[in-house]
């Protein structure tokens, strides 16, 4: 699973639309305006599939980096870690690594 948290709802919707174009609806969830115990509001895009095509991963990375650079206060997190200062290549690598790990850990044991 990949959890992408974006403070901006429009940005989250953009990422959600990118992924949902490729995966079936039960594999991608969007949680808008979820409320944390400390009051922080977040928009999460939750991708359950291990395999997302490299083209889409690259597109997601581009969107995430453009979101951060368009407004310095904007917060984007990937699996709980802020990606402020990351390049599109860094984010692509992180997304691919999460997908690969998911694939490895969810494959049926022999």
């Amino acid at each position: 699973m990949i959890v992408i948290r974006i403070d901006d709802e429009e940005g989250a919707k953009q990422v959600h639309d990118l992924v949902s174009g490729e995966l079936s609806p039960d594999l991608v969830h969007m949680s808008r305006g979820s409320r944390g115990f400390d009051g922080t509001i977040a928009n999460d895009v939750i991708i359950l599939a291990a395999i997302v095509s490299p083209v889409v991963i690259k597109r997601i990375a581009d969107v995430l980096v453009s979101l951060i650079t368009s407004k310095t206060q904007r917060e984007v997190m990937l699996n709980g870690v802020t990606i402020k200062g990351y390049s599109a290549a860094d984010v692509t690598r992180l997304l691919s690594a999460s997908g690969a790990q998911e694939a490895q850990e969810t494959q049926p044991k022999a």
């Binding site: 969830h29 969007m30 949680s31 808008r32 979820s34 409320r35 944390g36 115990f37 977040a42 999460d44 939750i46 709980g80």
Partner: peptide
């Protein structure tokens, strides 16, 4: 812990996640 407790109303049935931290 990612220092977070959160309710996600839009996931079918609803999902609540509470960290050990809290």
């Amino acid at each position: 812990s990612i220092g977070d407790a959160r309710a996600m109303t839009e996931i079918p049935g609803g999902v609540v996640r509470v960290d050990a931290l809290w």
